[in-house]
């Protein structure tokens, strides 16, 4: 068990190193730099080329790429994410709160969506092939066939403008307590939950149906144990195993992957911050956010693995 965690940890470090290098070079080869994108066409029109060159040297944008790469890696080893190019602010300060907000949104989504998805999946699995199952499966497919931006904009139109139950846009601050922020974001949470239930419900349903058809279920059935008992006590833990891996990856992708929802509702998360950093060519912020997202994937994966070990009697014994 400990060796499993250690091996996973070592491999994760390799992944993170590859990722950091990929992000560094990918953002470096792009045309343009932080100085150019901080100037409008009007401003560039008035700046002589030598002034631009001087500013570029002041900001350290003219250093050779290998020098910047080694100083970037060196910083990472010291847990120093660097400073923004134009304002010289510590990157960690810019990334920390949006990251907290995104993790909170992903966590809350999972917390609310997983039980619902599970209930739906169990109802559907118990009634496999019958009307209920077909209706649930159909609803799930429709649920993730609708683009997020359409769901979000429709929810705003209905529940904020026509029937003003909830705020249309989030006016809370980035560093407000999570309770304040999430209370201001019911429609954003609803948008991510709708997609999540559809996705998770579908995965869990398939897992359950597969397990219910397995030999050991058949044996339990023959020994007279009622179907609901088999479902709850035996099939569910077994079906949770593949479901858990998928759910963990899904939750990790929610951390940085709900850009559209963040933009539509002005939720102060890491995805919107990422888009801002890319367009402003604040390379260090982009790198920090990509790394943070990668760490999330690694941690969530690790958590799922440990969960599987806890759920699966075979691995627990060995």
């Amino acid at each position: 068990m400990i060796s499993l965690v250690l091996r996973r940890g070592a491999l994760s470090l390799v992944t993170l190193f590859l990722l950091a290098s990929f992000i560094f070079f990918a953002t470096e080869v792009l045309p343009g730099d932080a100085l150019d994108v901080s100037l409008s066409a009007d401003e560039i029109a008035m700046m002589p080329p030598e002034v631009l060159a001087r500013r570029r040297a002041e900001l350290g944008l003219d250093r050779p790429i290998l020098e910047r790469y080694t100083s970037f890696l060196g910083g990472l080893l010291r847990f120093d994410l660097g400073r923004t190019i134009i304002t010289r602010a510590p990157v960690a300060d810019i990334v920390a709160m949006p990251l907290r907000n995104s993790v909170a949104l992903a966590g809350l989504t999972l917390l609310l969506a997983l039980p619902v998805a599970l209930a739906i999946a169990m109802a559907a699995a118990q009634a496999k092939g019958r009307l209920l199952d077909n209706a649930v499966s159909g609803a799930a497919i429709i649920g993730y066939s609708i683009p997020e931006f359409v769901t979000g904009l429709l929810l705003i139109a209905v529940f904020a403008v026509w029937w003003p139950l909830f705020p249309a846009t989030i006016t809370a601050s980035t560093d407000d307590p999570l309770s304040v922020l999430l209370a201001a974001a019911p429609l954003a949470v609803a948008t991510t939950i709708i997609g999540s239930i559809a996705y998770l419900g579908r995965i869990l349903r398939v897992g359950l149906i597969e397990v219910m058809a397995a030999d050991f279920v058949e044996r339990l059935h023959l020994s007279g144990i009622p179907r609901w008992r088999i479902l709850w006590l035996h099939a569910l833990p077994a079906a949770m195993i593949p479901g858990l891996s998928a759910a963990a990856l899904y939750a990790a992708s929610l951390v940085s992957g709900v850009v559209v929802v963040e933009l539509v509702f002005a939720y102060p998360g890491i995805g919107a911050e990422l888009v801002r950093a890319v367009t402003r060519r604040e390379v260090h912020v982009v790198q920090a956010i990509a790394l943070a997202a990668a760490v999330c994937v690694v941690l969530f994966n690790l958590a799922a693995d440990l969960g599987i070990v806890a759920l699966d009697p075979r691995t627990r014994r060995s």
């Binding site: 904020a160 403008v161 249309a168 846009t169 933009l263 539509v264 002005a266």
Partner: peptide, 21 residues
């Protein structure tokens, strides 16, 4: 005065205006 930045997000800003935010 409270100022909220909704750069590039006009639909969001106008929804906020219509709903009284």
């Amino acid at each position: 005065i409270e100022l909220h930045n909704r750069e590039g997000q006009q639909e969001t800003a106008l929804a906020g205006l219509r709903s009284g935010q």
